[in-house]
Nucleic acid binder design. Sequence first.
DNA 1: TTCTGTGAAACTCTTCACAGCA
DNA 2: TGCTGTGAAGAGTTTCACAGAA
Lengths: 247, 247
Amino acid sequence: MTRQTSQARDRGIPEATVARLPVYLRALNGLAERGIATVSSEDLAASAGVNSAKLRKDLSHLGSYGTRGVGYDVDYLIYQISRELGLTQDWAVAIVGVGNLGRALANYGGFASRGFRIASLLDADPEVVGDRIAGLTVEHIDKLESVIRERDVSIVVIATPATSAQEVCERVTRAGITSILNFAPVVLTVPDGVDVRKVDLSIELQILAFHEQRKAVGAAGGPGGSAQVGPGIGPGAGNEWAEAVEA
Amino acid sequence: MTRQTSQARDRGIPEATVARLPVYLRALNGLAERGIATVSSEDLAASAGVNSAKLRKDLSHLGSYGTRGVGYDVDYLIYQISRELGLTQDWAVAIVGVGNLGRALANYGGFASRGFRIASLLDADPEVVGDRIAGLTVEHIDKLESVIRERDVSIVVIATPATSAQEVCERVTRAGITSILNFAPVVLTVPDGVDVRKVDLSIELQILAFHEQRKAVGAAGGPGGSAQVGPGIGPGAGNEWAEAVEA
DNA sequence: TTCTGTGAAACTCTTCACAGCA
DNA sequence: TGCTGTGAAGAGTTTCACAGAA
């Protein structure tokens, strides 16, 4: 069960690291656009909103791509991260559900530049089928399986109402899809080996509300309510526990 | 390091738990609608897509709201979680940037039902200002500060292009906002005490692409069922998310 | 000297397994 | 008996701090 790959390096990159690589990539692209050729872990970390030790540890999982005393070559690092994420290849994506959100996604410019090509927009509503959006003609959901097969779709985005999401999910997994990005406010049940990521707007707002509430309460709270943060701040001083998620 | 062993009123709820409470809440609401009055940790966990030990541990941070040998009272648990998340109060939200995504957000029904009220839609484009969307008239960005002040806005959603996001961020934090949900593909710099959550669609897709690629490469003859359902609310996932809208 | 790469420590989160209550 | 609540073990992640390359 121990895995070894063609390369001697251990390919087990921590999930937390994978989730940050796209952030680094974006920061690096920004630097490249500004003509910056080399960057230190300190500076890149600042651009990406993490601390430098974490950044170095993350990058160390990919290999030794930096130069001690100097930093990282921006272009080279962009290439290495892109390759690691699989962005050097073309991914065909189908978007199911062309409501407000589906349209927003279809018009989002950040896909093509990262190797994602929208291969199809599908919807069940006859009113919507046939509309032209972002250069594509909306197709009927009946064609879901044939579109996936014929256009080599490997990632499906579900932007349907909650009630249809599970059914769409089952159809696409049956058609061989193993990567799904779900926007519908429902927990999808999928077979083993299928990777689902969920984006839920109202959940994000609820998490913000929790912290917002906490701030208000904590400010007036009693002595017992000291935060879990550092032991540093004593009582009496600032009570708000700062918690910028991003630097 | 002082440490109240008594779990009773320790208000330090783990971040990972907070991120899952909205999911439990959604599952519970589904049960309530179906007239189910009591639920076991096993069943609720299944509805929420987590394992039961995790669910029990999460709920134990709120207090002892279950009954041994029986389970949890659905309505009571809905109330307790809602209260913990601060959803029993009304939150005024302003959405800045009324492009495709801003419109999708404005029309998203999942807000109102959870105590979030859209108090204003703002945009810089004179073409858009004055449009009526989701029952609101789009206002000019010039009014940002006065809207926040006069309508008691506590959460701001940034759905502008990347180039404007930081400026909007600075204006709203100066106006006293400490909770921001950012959809612009950029890392915002904020003062301590300001909570930013980011949603970045292209990052989510890149993470999927990474795993998809991994499957293709390593799967050939690989270990039986790959398992690894990546979803749920990840740990690192808590903070890093995806985006949308650009030019 | 500067800055990377990395062991080790610290911390957080998940899972196990079972005591104990209804 | 059936199920919650929870210590304790385990796994994963972050941070520290410094050896060592350029």
